[in-house]
């Protein structure tokens, strides 16, 4: 057949497309389950690492069952939604919905006698999505730990948000100011505290050359946490009332 004829060109491209498409589709479907398993275990591993439980991916599932005592699905108004399992919520799809329709997963963990609240985060970096988890201590304002990841930030610049030294600088920072309102954490180029010793300034030192990733990170933390504030306030109120009731009971006794 003439290699330059139209019919040969059509024939060749048709065969090529069929061969390539079926090969790729076949590999993708064969490997799908294994890939999802990896993603699921990594999610558990990430959640655990914010509360200082470090494990490899294979050990994550077992430790997750031990330490995560509650998975809560919240609505915007702070009420729980029992119909949807928190762990199954895919933030990637969720953040595209209007805020009223979104469901917000919250994980409650316990390590020894301490209780932690873990918030999944997702936002935009420079090139593509960034995400992570942020754990608060029982006072609901001090950061216990964070973990960040990204899809396509620049290696050595924006991608440094996955590094331990950067994530460590969040530890102990407060997300809530003295008046009790949410301020989040700002990744700042101008703070006078590059070592991160000041834990009251709601700031961590930015990464050189990663301004937009850093800004995206600050926005992400504020935006995501703001959706939980109603729940956290109610929860705190309940606790206070419980304490008051307890103390009344004690004094009655």
């Amino acid at each position: 057949m003439d290699r330059d004829s139209n019919s040969y060109t059509f024939l060749f491209s048709t065969i090529m497309v069929i061969v390539v498409a079926s090969t790729l589709a076949f590999t993708a479907s064969v490997l799908k389950e294994k890939q999802n398993e990896n993603v699921r275990k990594e999610k558990m591993q990430n959640i655990l690492s914010t509360i200082g439980v470090l494990t490899d991916r294979d050990g994550a599932e077992k430790l997750y069952k031990i330490h995560i005592i509650e998975e809560i699905t919240l609505k915007k108004d702070g009420k729980t939604d029992d119909k949807i399992k928190a762990f199954s919520i895919d933030l990637k799809k969720e953040i595209k919905k209007p805020v009223e329709m979104q469901r917000f997963p919250l994980y409650v963990a316990s390590v020894k006698e301490f209780k932690y609240y873990i918030f999944p985060l997702r936002g935009s970096g420079l090139w593509d999505a960034i995400w992570g988890y942020l754990a608060l201590e029982e006072d609901m304002k001090t950061i216990k730990g964070v973990v960040f990841d990204h899809k396509a930030e620049t290696a050595g610049l924006g991608a440094e948000i996955t590094q331990e030294w950067f994530q460590d600088s969040f530890k102990g920072e407060k997300i809530i100011d003295v008046n009790g309102s949410l301020v989040g954490i700002s990744v700042s180029k101008v703070n006078n505290d590059p070592k991160g010793l000041d834990k009251q300034d709601h700031e961590v030192d930015a990464i050189s050359g990663a301004t937009i990733t850093g800004d995206g990170l600050s926005d992400m933390i504020y935006e995501r946490l703001s959706n939980y504030m109603i729940y956290l306030k109610n929860n705190k109120l309940n606790k206070k009332q419980n304490l008051e009731i307890d103390s009344i009971m004690i004094s009655l006794n």
């Binding site: 290699r3 330059d4 040969y8 060109t9 060749f12 491209s13 090529m16 497309v17 390539v20 090969t23 790729l24 590999t27």
Partner: peptide, 21 residues
């Protein structure tokens, strides 16, 4: 075997599918 007129596309498909694989 590659038709001359679409050779660039064919090359692209080969590279892209290898990479995807």
């Amino acid at each position: 075997l590659i038709p001359n007129r679409i050779r660039i596309i064919v090359q692209l498909v080969v590279v892209a599918s290898l990479v995807a694989l």
